[in-house]
């Protein structure tokens, strides 16, 4: 469901289950939060400018 891979029926069932089951409600929220955490906080690296230049140069040389 979190990955948008559940069918509509599955989604409806899971949603109604989560509303009434505290264990799954907490589990779902935890997984959602971990996803958010990964997207917002995992360190991102900037592509070195010289890499982009080097790739373009090699492509131009080869054509």
């Amino acid at each position: 469901m979190l990955d948008n891979e559940a069918s509509q029926d599955e989604e409806e069932y899971l949603n109604s289950h989560i509303d009434s089951c505290i264990v799954c409600f907490e589990e779902y929220n935890l997984e959602k939060e971990i996803r958010e955490l990964l997207r917002s906080k995992v360190n991102k690296h900037q592509v070195p400018g010289e890499l982009v230049t080097s790739i373009r140069n090699k492509i131009i040389e080869s054509v």
Binding site: K44, H45, V47, P48, L51, V52, S54, I55, K58, I59, S62
Partner: peptide
């Protein structure tokens, strides 16, 4: 997609030089 590619490479190798090589190899 070079940003995503470089970050994928970095998260696999943990090294700047290896990531650069890997991304360059892939693009070529």
């Amino acid at each position: 997609h070079i940003d995503s590619m470089y970050n994928f490479a970095y998260r696999l190798t943990f090294e700047e030089d290896e990531s650069k090589d890997l991304v360059q190899d892939t693009y070529l």
